[in-house]
Computed example of a mutant assay.
Amino acid sequence: MIKNAENIIVGISIGDLNGIGSEVVLKTFEDPRMLELCTPVIFANVKILSFIKKTFELTSILHGIDRLDQIVLGKINVLNVWRDGIDLNFGVNDETVGKQAIKSFVAATKALKEGLIDVLVTAPINKYNIQSEDFKFPGHTDYLDQELEGNALMLMVQDNLRVGLLTDHIPVNEVAKHLTEALIIQKIETVKKALIQDFSINKPKIAVLGLNPHAGDGGVIGKEDEEIIKPTIKKIFDKGTLVFGPFAADGFFGNNQYEKYDAVIAAYHDQGLIPFKTLSFGKGVNYTAGLSKIRTSPDHGTAYEIAGKNKADFNSFKEAVYLALDIYSSRVRYKEISVSPMKIREKQEEKNNR
């Protein structure tokens, strides 16, 4: 059964407090209508967030709690993950602030694993100041991939535009050697499953972009498209998945080909994210597909250059909350359909006919 709206608990890791994360989080929930859709729990410190709230002249009430069993539905809850004070300097890279960002994120992830929150929305971190002996991950996604069941895949979402990646945070000169048949199959299957269970698309159509210019021009400009990507796509297609490509990346978005597909998988980070961010107009969301739990985040970083200046656009963070709630509802419906008597009988008949 889908919970009543305010009973859906949205955990929020606060990110880098010297960036714009706290600003966009608090501005999102300044609108009281958001509390009719869910109950937020911000993993941080209520005194610090109260100070930041005053800085931006916001009026919402923050409810400080020390344990997750103290959550008040329909209120903005702040779980005190730490109690020591922090000197905030908006726009400054600070290791102490980075440590608190990871404390928030690790605590929120633990709560997500234990089912104490329903979804997780992460505010931006600084990938440099979070590194320590206890946390040696490039970012959120790699840690979540370790802690949660499944295979994490970055899926950028804005309405019906969905862009996934075969490879993400690796140097461009290493992309080609990472493209294997096994990797391509895994990523396509992950995207397909996400489209079905998380976006309620029964027969998804997926496009895959080529690695090289003009998708290799038949092997003239690089062999990877012709020798690895193309035959792998055919193998997957022959098994019933509607996957097509590889397409030349340069014209794929410019001539609106992407509109014919439910998702597009790019070969590497910038090949997918540059056109996505150009088309999403600041409302894009980063969704970590392929995991047992739901995590979303805005599609921007800490934005130190405007931090503390009351200039941050909170639309991407608000969209991240909306998407997390939508996917939560889609997964509940998917599970209900999967265990319906008709589905159980169909699976049994299919098994008997083998």
Rank of each mutant, 00 (worst) to 15 (best):
K347V: 03
T55Y: 10
H169W: 09
L242G: 04
K75A: 08
A267R: 02
L279C: 07
D326S: 11
K311S: 05
F314P: 07
N212S: 13
K293M: 11
I86R: 12
N352K: 09
S340L: 06
F253P: 02
L279M: 13
T55H: 15
L161V: 12
A324G: 14
N352Y: 02
L62P: 04
S104T: 05
E114A: 09
V78R: 07
C38T: 15
H269I: 07
E189G: 03
T288L: 13
T59C: 11
K293I: 04
E30G: 05
A263Q: 00
T28I: 08
V220T: 09
N212C: 13
A263T: 04
P275Q: 11
V191H: 06
D238Q: 15
L195T: 00
L211N: 03
D142F: 05
E95S: 07
E350L: 15
A324W: 11
V46T: 06
I102P: 04
F90C: 05
L291H: 12
H300P: 08
N77E: 05
I233K: 01
R333M: 13
P213T: 09
G64L: 08
G254E: 14
N352T: 02
G290F: 03
V97A: 14
F317D: 05
A108Y: 03
L144A: 12
V264P: 00
A307Q: 06
G222E: 10
Q100G: 02
D84Y: 06
K192F: 10
K343Q: 15
T28G: 12
N77D: 00
G98M: 04
G164N: 08
L273N: 04
Y287S: 09
A182M: 03
F317I: 01
D69T: 05
D159E: 13
E224C: 12
Y322L: 10
I228T: 15
G216K: 06
L26F: 04
R295N: 01
V208S: 02
L323N: 08
E224G: 06
I274S: 05
R345Q: 14
L112F: 07
V97R: 01
R67A: 01
V41P: 08
V10D: 02
V25M: 15
T278K: 02
I337V: 09
Q146L: 13
K277M: 09
K239T: 14
L73Q: 01
S200M: 12
N151A: 10
D66N: 15
D270M: 02
R333I: 14
R333S: 14
G150V: 04
V172I: 13
N353G: 07
L279F: 13
L88G: 05
R345A: 15
D225Y: 09
A320R: 06
I86E: 07
